[in-house]
Design a protein around this nucleic acid. Structure first.
Lengths: 217, 217, 217, 217
DNA sequence: TATGAATGAGAGTTCATTCAT
DNA sequence: AATGAATGAACTCTCATTCAT
């Protein structure tokens, strides 16, 4: 057996949580989709809630790690760093798109866990994004404006394709997992960054930013 | 009794669905919060599902009606019409912010109902938004660019404050229901419209668009 | 309105009890089939149980009355009287075949009511049937044999077509309500009476008994 | 534990269905009579309906098997074979008298399941009984007469003691499960067969038919 | 006489979890 | 590590009935 039973449970859970939500998915659903005994969920994860929390934190930890990795890089411009960060987060979510979707939906719930996760993970995300924008403004790269809405706007753009993929695919036949989606979407984002965020004179001259080869436009 | 029991049920349901999600809310929760007998939910709405569907369609119908109302108005510019439309939709959601939040979350589920609602309601929303943008481009008001992402971007901005209000309030102390939130948020959106959507020369000259007094900037 | 609402309820109840049994039929079923408000059942009959008991006793009272009417007639022979009695009971059940079916099924339940009805009604039926058979034996018309089984056998034959009409129609395409069924069935019963009950020498001579014209063989 | 919990459920269900009917019995009744958790009924039988169907089909399958066993035997006369068949069916029902009573009552309902069971099981019963009677007529053992009513009559006699045992015990103090009941009842049936079914000349000579010792008269 | 709203009780089923094996 | 049996709690919904109108 290639995949351990524990992994099979995770895979099944992710897929079901993503489609039906946490409360809409039963342990039996998961077990039967994973071809595994029901009791195993409790055995391996200490129950449905444990499995759920593991999925949430794993995703968010990876998410944070991506941010940290990008923030630690040295870039010529804040603009390029921001675009690289956004790109990496899109790729991370694309790789784990089922979990991503699940996490984004569950994060709209009003529970103790969600509040905790926000404090633990999203606060860091907020902090790092704000730091980046603030630096850009200080350096004169970005236009001065209310920082809150800018950060929120950026975050919304990052998350949207994996929060409403169903909407995109149903109404626009856009599959957020297909190879070139991120490239196309990045073009849109880059435009936003250059027009809305950066100071205007620079906008026509600087057209490229450094990226790993694989995601070059 | 001022509020009929049927209305009390709706109010309770909206509040609970919004916080815990549809599957996370039990009929008994609703009934007890509404100070009403459990059986009354089935009596008035034909069950939990019926109540849920009524809430969803009611909200979406009202949403569409707002769009229709705005599209039928005559404006000097597409820009002003777009901004007025966005503003009205924000106000509509603000008035029904509990339902709005519930609907936006449930719309990320993968169910037959959601698919139907998308076809019935969101397809119209998409159609009208696209029409508006396309007209603006034809008239030379808006810059030519991929229409898909533009529409999606606009929709995302409209919806975001009521899809993730919890995030905003928890991390930014932004209450999306407070009186001036819409004004502040509109300023941000207007900036986006002028910078990203409109052709640049005009951007510094036209600064106002017609709105009812109450929402003047 | 030709039929009063009370009668409409009775009709609907009879049809439903007959098909689904008492416990399998809800007051709402009855009311909706009768196009009548649910509360009317309680109003007119003091509840589902009251309606049920009224149907049961009405049928059984009529049943007893038929027996009494036949027993009081004067016949030349016990054989003819027995056959006339059987015939009348078949006709009575045929006229009220829905109630008949319902009563016969419900009579196989084990409840206080059933026990009471047995004591009140079926005991009389038993008494009269036994009397008739006993007289026939005393007069030398009927062969002497265990009276218990004979009476039970006769009763079973009387009841069978309305206790298992569904069986007959499903497997034999015999409709127990069609005009000539009773005639055909009586021929069978008469054969049984003549062969099994009567002394043999007489069997070929006496061939007819007095009946209303319509059911003449 | 001698009896498994599954068996305990079956026993309790049979007893309750028999007394109160299927619709009159609740799963909780069954579980509490069986000293078992309510959920176990759904676990083992997939719900009340599943349990019910299992009981029905199990009984009817056994019933058919008895018929098949008798039909396959070789007898000197059709009369003896018929009597042996009837005897075996009485014994089978006597052994499972609770289920028998339940099945016979439920078979008078008008449901999809009943229609299916009739097609599946009772059609075979009808076929075999008809075959036996027809052979008897061809061989000259049985008097020629309408075969339908004969078969129905026989079936009615076979079933009656277990369809209306309550009637018998209440009004006649006849317990259909007591050891000698079948013997006494068989005497009555044999009389019917000899008088009504067989040709008359033979009736006084042939008085016995081969049976296993245990049921010799 | 008739009704729609409302109710408490109980229906059958599913839930996540535990336990002995 | 893995399982099938078993459980108590909770689920949604329907039940027959009552009540004010």
């Amino acid at each position: 057996m290639k995949e351990t039973k524990k992994e099979k449970i995770i895979d099944a859970a992710v897929r079901l949580f993503q489609t039906q939500g946490y409360d809409g998915t039963s342990v039996r659903d998961i077990a039967s989709k994973a071809n595994v005994n029901v009791a195993l969920v409790s055995y391996h994860f200490g129950g449905k809630k444990g499995l759920y929390e593991e999925l949430m934190t794993q995703f968010l930890e990876g998410y944070l790690k991506v941010i940290k990795g990008e923030v630690d890089k040295t870039f010529g411009s804040c603009r390029d760093q921001l675009l690289s960060l956004i790109h990496s987060l899109l790729e991370y979510q694309s790789t784990n798109h089922f979990v991503a979707r699940m996490v984004h939906r569950e994060m709209t719930m009003d529970s103790v866990l969600v509040r905790e996760l926000m404090s633990t993970y999203l606060r860091k995300e907020k902090h790092d994004l704000e730091g980046l924008i603030r630096t850009g403004m200080r350096r004169g790269e970005f236009r001065k404006q209310a920082i809150d809405f800018v950060v929120i706007h950026i975050r919304t753009m990052i998350i949207m394709p994996y929060q409403s993929p169903h909407y995109l695919s149903e109404l626009y036949q856009i599959t957020t997992t297909e190879p070139y989606f991120i490239d196309r979407y990045m073009k849109h984002i880059r435009q936003w960054v250059d027009l809305c965020l950066c100071k205007h004179m620079e906008l026509s001259t600087s057209t490229s930013y450094l990226l790993p080869r694989s995601i070059s436009q």
